[in-house]
Amino acid sequence: MIPSDHFVRMYNELFKMLEEKGHEHLQRYWMRISELQETILGPYIDRDGLKGMYDYWEHIRIEENCDADLKVNEEYFEFRMNKCPSLSKVLDNDAGAFELYCDHCAGWVIPVMERHGYYYAGDIISRTKPECLLRVYKDKQKAEEFLKSAKLPAKPYG
């Protein structure tokens, strides 16, 4: 059994293998994971919009042992990761980290948000330090405005 705690290290290996075949293979996999995540996160958004996202990621913060701060207001939902357990595990890994590991997060979140009429804006900040910032806006222009100030905007689909 791949323990729940170790899934991300296997995930990281798959990313490397798919990237070797071509970046579009990796993007197709993110889309597939996004379809799975739609069945989990989607009902929270349908029920409560931005507040539903807060509820979903609050549950993730606890279950995945994240050091993170969450915020929700009329304009956006924010998830500020102070120490990402996922990237931390991948960096603490005898097989080594995949260079674009962080992109998987936006890779599955963006299609879910688009399906629900929201706009994703993510700042990876660094690919080697486990901290990042995710925001989801109601308004497209505000999301684009936020991305202008991002250190490393998450754009997994180019």
Binding site: M10, L14, I40, E63, E64, N65, D92, D94
Partner: peptide
Amino acid sequence: RYVDTGEVHKDFHLATNETIDFV
């Protein structure tokens, strides 16, 4: 080599299931 403590996010098993199917 790897030791985890704290909460467990068991939905990763759903992702493993989906991944095996996809691959």
